[in-house]
């Protein structure tokens, strides 16, 4: 976390992003988000707009996207709100990338359940490929971030790569996912454990067994 910082405001950055604006598709979405709030409360849409802006930047750079300062200024102008308030929001949430990211943004969950189930090995596997926390590899392929709980504790450990979650990982499964991504394939999202569908108990249910096939009324058995 401590590595989070804003990309410095340089003339090159201004030149590259100074004239940035929403393209028609994202503009339509942005206006839709603003329309969810009463007139005069357009500022409430700031989080949605920052996300859209980041995604459009992602489309333009072939990555998950990030938020250069001129883009944040554009959003502030779009919502008629002070720029410092926009920067406050963007810096608060890890969902917004403040510096350019690689093609694949690997976010490894390091919170307790994932850690107990082996997130240290997952991180080690990432390091082996040359990734460093908070950095992008030189080939522009990978950015590694350690994040806090992503809410997939039942299928820990997990990583989120761009918009997809990959769960029930171990070193081999992670390697398979990453190799597939490098090869340009689309690996299956969600649990990587063979035979498991989502986050159901692995090895079959241990409670409420009668409910598996049909509805069962337990009330008489209490």
């Amino acid at each position: 976390m401590a590595e989070r910082h804003l990309e410095p405001d340089t003339p090159e950055l201004r030149e590259r992003w100074g004239n940035w604006s929403f393209n028609p598709a994202w503009k339509a979405k942005a206006d839709e988000a603003i329309s969810h709030y009463p007139a005069g409360r357009q500022k409430s849409a700031v989080m949605a707009l920052l996300d859209y802006a980041q995604r459009q930047v992602g489309e333009e750079t072939g990555t998950q996207g990030w938020l250069p300062i001129p883009v944040m200024e554009y959003v502030a102008g779009y919502l008629d709100m002070p720029i410092i308030r926009v920067v406050e929001v963007a810096t608060f949430y890890t969902m917004y990338n403040l510096v350019p990211v690689g093609k694949f943004h690997v976010q490894v969950c390091g919170t307790t359940p994932c850690m107990l189930r082996g997130s240290d090995d997952i991180l080690a596997a990432c390091y082996k490929r040359g990734m460093r926390k908070g950095h992008t590899t030189e080939d522009g392929m990978w950015t590694l971030t350690e994040v806090e709980c992503m809410g997939n504790c039942a299928t820990a450990p997990m990583v989120q790569i761009n918009d997809g979650n990959y769960e029930d990982l171990n070193t081999e499964r992670l390697d398979a996912v990453l190799d597939a991504l490098v090869a340009g394939e689309t690996p299956k999202e969600g649990t990587q454990e063979p035979g498991r569908h989502t986050s159901e108990p692995s090895g079959g249910p241990t409670t409420l067994k009668e409910m598996v096939t049909e509805n069962h009324d337990y009330r008489g058995e209490w």
């Binding site: 976390m1 405001d9 410092i84 920067v87 406050e88 810096t91 608060f92």
Partner: peptide, 19 residues
């Protein structure tokens, strides 16, 4: 004049003016 803000979060929170 909104010019001072709190950037980042938690332990990393920093008070600053824009840029």
């Amino acid at each position: 004049v909104d010019e001072i803000g709190a950037l980042y979060r938690g332990e990393n929170m920093q008070i600053t003016t824009y840029l």
